[in-house]
Deep mutational scan, measured.
Amino acid sequence: TDVTFHVNGRNLHLKGADEELLRRIEELIRRGADIEELEKAVKEWEK
């Protein structure tokens, strides 16, 4: 799945995201995470 999140005026584009990653990103956004936290979560998922 390709999806782009718009967070605090910045874009986080995910290519090939699975349901697990999407749920994790949505949860972080609900908690008020900043873009750096979201990018870190994506990097951890990519490993």
Rank of each mutant, 00 (worst) to 15 (best):
R31E: 08
A17L: 05
R10H: 15
E37T: 10
E37I: 10
E39F: 12
T1I: 15
G16N: 14
L38D: 00
L38K: 00
G9N: 03
T1V: 14
D2S: 05
V3Y: 15
L28K: 05
I35H: 03
L38M: 07
E19N: 12
R31L: 10
K40D: 13
L14K: 00
L21K: 02
H13T: 15
K47Q: 11
E20N: 14
G9H: 02
A17T: 04
E27N: 12
H6D: 10
I25E: 00
N11H: 15
T1A: 11
V42G: 02
R23V: 07
E36P: 12
N11V: 15
G16C: 07
H13S: 08
N8H: 06
G9C: 04
R30D: 07
H6F: 09
N11Y: 15
L12P: 00
E36N: 08
K47E: 10
L28E: 03
N11I: 15
D2R: 03
H6P: 12
D18T: 15
I35V: 06
N11A: 15
V42P: 00
L38P: 00
A41Q: 10
N8P: 01
E39L: 14
L22V: 14
W45M: 05
E44M: 12
I35Y: 15
V42W: 03
L21A: 03
N8Y: 04
F5K: 05
W45G: 04
E46P: 12
T4N: 07
E37G: 07
I35D: 02
H6K: 08
A17H: 04
R31D: 08
T4H: 11
H6A: 05
R24C: 06
G16V: 05
T4W: 08
E26D: 06
G16L: 05
R24E: 07
T1G: 09
A41P: 00
N11W: 15
E36Q: 06
F5R: 05
E27H: 12
D2F: 06
R31W: 12
D2K: 04
V3F: 15
L12K: 00
W45F: 08
A17S: 04
K40W: 12
L12S: 00
W45A: 05
L22P: 00
T4C: 15
R24I: 09
E44T: 11
L22F: 05
G16I: 06
K15C: 05
T4E: 10
E36Y: 09
N8E: 04
E46A: 14
R10M: 13
E26M: 15
